[in-house]
Amino acid sequence: MTPLRFVALGDSLTEGVGDPVGEGWRGWAALLVGGFGDVEFTNLAVSGARTCDVLDRQLPGALALRPDIASVVIGVNDTLRCTFDIQSVAARLDTVYAAFTGQGAVLLTACLPDPGAMLGLPGPLARPLARRQWAVNAVVHALSERYGAVHLHACEGAWLTDRAMWSADRLHPGERGHRQLAARFHVLLAERGLTTGAAPSPEPEFPAATRSANLWWLATAGTGWVARRCTDLLPQLLTLAVDELRHRARGTSARLDLRTTAAVSAALAALSVGERRPDAV
């Protein structure tokens, strides 16, 4: 029997950051593999990737592998750039999703937590990021429905506030969190009859990192990781925070939410989301 081909695309979450094994990372996608039985798994995810990187760099190689299952979990890094534009994000995701379903692959997607909330940023800084992540999640929700994706609501649930689920940087799941993601995907796949193997164990294989080890990671690699992804955003984020405070003082904060909703609606309208394509799964 021909092995099932599973290809994972995305950023550091899918690369496995937060779930170290040996000298590298493992992550939720690799943990999910055991539920498929005979499978050929390829992880193309790269830390720091945005939707443009998935479209331009990861998609061609993934399509060449003719996967039976393809996961596309992406978007947080887009929200951390000054060039963020929800219409461009939507267009890229639409192209990527269509390419996989056009080949007959089953698509795995997920909406993701708000990075500002996960980092515990003050309200005026956190709310602009929250709106951006909400916009990305709204687009992912709509396109996942359009293309019949196996979609995981990872932006909600008690796991978000359970520190045992998260690594030291508070942006990436730890081993327990990656296992939770894998297990939740396994449930969704099993409901569709797409996996018959055992679900990933929720219990960690390795002991949790000590507090001193976490602090050392934050002081070295962790701080650099955040800085590299937010450098071009910080000046704009401060401007957005000032705008946030001004609207709050005037009692017009709702206008900012309406502006984001309108931008999402325009992005989806441009893709004619209302009609499913004939080649959708």
Rank of each mutant, 00 (worst) to 15 (best):
T195R: 01
P200D: 09
F206M: 14
L160I: 12
H186G: 02
Q180P: 05
T220Y: 05
T196L: 12
L160P: 06
E205Q: 13
L215P: 00
R179S: 06
E175N: 03
H186P: 01
A190C: 07
E203C: 11
R211S: 12
A190Y: 02
P207D: 10
P204Q: 06
T195G: 05
R176A: 15
A213N: 04
P204L: 09
G222I: 07
R211A: 14
F185K: 02
F185S: 01
E205G: 13
T161S: 14
R176H: 01
W216C: 04
A219Q: 10
R176V: 08
L189S: 00
D169F: 07
F206T: 15
P207M: 06
T195F: 07
W217H: 11
G197Q: 04
S167P: 04
G197M: 09
P204D: 00
Q180W: 15
G197L: 08
R192K: 12
W159V: 13
G193Y: 04
R176S: 12
P202F: 07
R170Y: 00
G222K: 02
A208E: 15
H172G: 00
E203Y: 11
A190Q: 13
H178S: 02
M165N: 12
H186I: 01
N214D: 13
L188C: 07
W159D: 03
R163A: 14
R192M: 02
R211N: 08
L218Q: 11
R176C: 04
D162G: 11
N214T: 05
G193W: 06
A208L: 12
V187H: 12
A208P: 11
A209E: 14
L218T: 03
Q180R: 15
R211H: 10
S201C: 13
P202D: 01
N214K: 11
T196A: 13
T220S: 13
E175M: 09
R179A: 00
A183N: 10
E203R: 13
W159H: 15
W166K: 06
P200K: 05
S212W: 10
D169G: 07
D162W: 09
L215N: 08
T196N: 10
W166H: 04
W217Y: 15
G222L: 02
V187L: 12
V187Y: 04
A164M: 12
G177K: 00
L160A: 08
W159M: 11
P207E: 05
S201D: 15
A190N: 07
A183P: 09
H186K: 02
E191Q: 14
P200N: 08
E203F: 11
F185W: 12
A199Y: 01
A219T: 09
R211E: 13
S212N: 06
H178V: 02
W159L: 07
L181V: 15
D162E: 13
L194S: 08
R170T: 06
P173Y: 10
L171M: 13
T196C: 09
A199S: 14
P202Q: 07
T220I: 01
A190T: 12
L160N: 06
A198M: 06
S201R: 11
R184W: 01
G193L: 09
P173L: 10
G222C: 09
A190P: 03
L160C: 02
E203P: 03
A209L: 14
M165E: 08
H186E: 05
A168D: 04
G174Q: 06
R170K: 10
L188E: 09
R184Q: 14
L194W: 09
